[in-house]
Amino acid sequence: MVNPPQVEARTADNDRELALLRRVALGDREAFGTLYSGYYPRLGRFLSRLTQRPELIDEAINDTFWVVWQKGGEFRGASQVSTWIMGIAYRCTLKTLRRAGGTATEPLSEDYEDTGTPELQAEQELRDWVGKGLRHLPQEQRTTLELAYYMGHSCEEIGEIMECPVSTVKARMFHARVKLRNLLPTLGGMTERGKP
């Protein structure tokens, strides 16, 4: 469970992103492109659990990075670069969803085509199933879990991103866990079945 290399990797990532952001603040478009390309897939997958409409995901990513371009010079390094960017992304996404009148209630897109091998099919089935479980959670609880488990943020960072006290993050995590235990009671069995 002890994982110092993970901590070192996070520090190295932050240093690299901070260097890019400093260049972005000076108007360096190449640095901006590198930062954008690094976040695009991660943000896309994170946001796809908040909305299934691809055009809204793209819009939210571009709104986020428009702010990064405009405000990069104001970042003082008080938090990790990723916490700062995710905070912007969270607010932009909520705004985009409100504007579009859409929430994360659209049906899950059935774009997991069979790819042939039983292993890949089992993987897809598991992802799909966990995804459906997550979608039954209220948006705040789902986002908390995504930020913790998919994006790897700490409790304090999630509070910063979602602009709420740490006690609220803990409460959301608590309720999300209790609900998922009821929604996905056989997660262990499913995992075992998924193994070749």
Binding site: L126, E146, Y150, L187, G188
Partner: peptide
């Protein structure tokens, strides 16, 4: 048991997408 469940959930959420 809870720890195992959360580990599996964490694993499932981080499985690389196609």
């Amino acid at each position: 048991e809870e720890f195992d469940f959360q580990m599996r959930l964490h694993g499932a959420m981080n499985r690389p997408a196609q």
